[in-house]
């Protein structure tokens, strides 16, 4: 995959108007604000913090726990799809079947690790939206007047049919369709490298939180833009360096001995912000709310 193509895909995916379902998700921010966490909790600081600081507090804690729990799933899913798509010999269909089985296992593991019903709900909604986006928004259009018609028999065609199969499976409740899994599938199908995929995923998560802040009227649109340039970049860099190498540990758990199993557990996905977990799960208890999570 050449870098021009990659850059172009990045431009497409970072469009904030894409129907990815993130518009109705605040990942617990709304509940955080309602529960009074936009207030000075530290007695030590000399200058009193303002709404920008509170927003960044949330952004840091939220992105940190999301990165640590979701990036391993993006990595493993992306690897599985990328590997299968590279398989060009006769067994290519088998490779896609294997990848599908793997995606289902990862999806199931993510479900068992997401022990918060609100986060589960939001993750599934956004995951399915991504699959729909791919099959409806990224399919090759029929433009007989302008585009040469060719039969998609290569990796593109196999990627497209894989996503359609996955979408059908989710609709039949054969799997959950969680966001990090579907993101891994989508970006691998579009030929984005795994590192770009993880980086963009965190960036979009952060930007979505900032646009939620604007809609909640905690900060203004210019302030959000300032944060995007000056706070989000170092934040995404930091979380990438912490979490991009983590994997789910799913592949090896059945094969290795006890000592190694410990090691897998210790390196695997984990939530890092229990407070955010409680607040996010309390979303539906709010008397009035504008978001779904």
């Amino acid at each position: 995959m050449d870098s021009d193509h990659e850059a172009y895909i990045l431009l497409l995916l970072s469009d904030s108007n894409l129907p990815t379902g993130s518009f109705v998700a605040s990942a617990g921010l709304e509940s955080y604000v309602t529960h009074g966490f936009f207030s000075n909790l530290s007695s030590s600081s000399t200058t009193s913090p303002d709404k920008m600081d509170y927003t960044v507090n949330f952004l840091r804690d939220s992105l940190s726990t999301y990165g640590h729990s979701a990036l391993p799933f993006v990595l493993d899913t992306h690897r599985a799809i990328e590997g299968a798509l590279q398989d060009t010999n006769a067994s290519a269909d088998d490779a896609m079947d294997c990848a599908m089985a793997r995606v289902q296992e990862l999806d199931e593991l993510y479900e068992t690790m997401t022990l918060n019903h609100i986060a589960r709900r939001a993750s599934k909604t956004q995951g399915v939206a991504l699959l729909t986006l791919f099959s409806r928004g990224f399919a090759k259009p029929r433009l007989s007047q302008h585009l040469e018609t060719s039969v998609d028999s290569g990796a593109d065609g196999r990627a497209a049919s894989f996503v359609d199969r996955l979408k059908l499976l989710v609709r039949r409740e054969g799997t959950h369709g969680h966001l990090p899994i579907c993101w891994g599938v989508l970006t691998a199908a579009l030929g984005l490298s795994v590192e770009r995929s993880q980086y963009l995923h965190l960036f979009l998560q952060a930007r979505s939180l900032l646009s939620s802040s604007v809609r909640l009227n905690t900060i203004g649109p210019y302030a959000a833009q300032q944060l995007l340039l000056h706070a989000v970049r170092p934040l995404v860099d930091a979380e990438m360096s912490r979490s991009k190498h983590l994997d789910t540990g799913l592949s090896k758990s059945s094969e290795v001995g006890k000592e190694d199993a410990d090691e897998e557990v210790i390196r695997g996905p984990a939530m890092t912000w229990p407070l955010g977990e409680i607040l996010a799960a309390r979303h539906d208890l709010q008397h009035s709310r504008i978001f779904n999570s």
Partner: peptide, 15 residues
């Protein structure tokens, strides 16, 4: 939960 000005002394959730 109505809008609060400071976090409560105890918070819990159930899923």
């Amino acid at each position: 939960v109505f809008k609060q000005h400071a976090p409560p002394p105890l918070l819990w959730s159930l899923s």
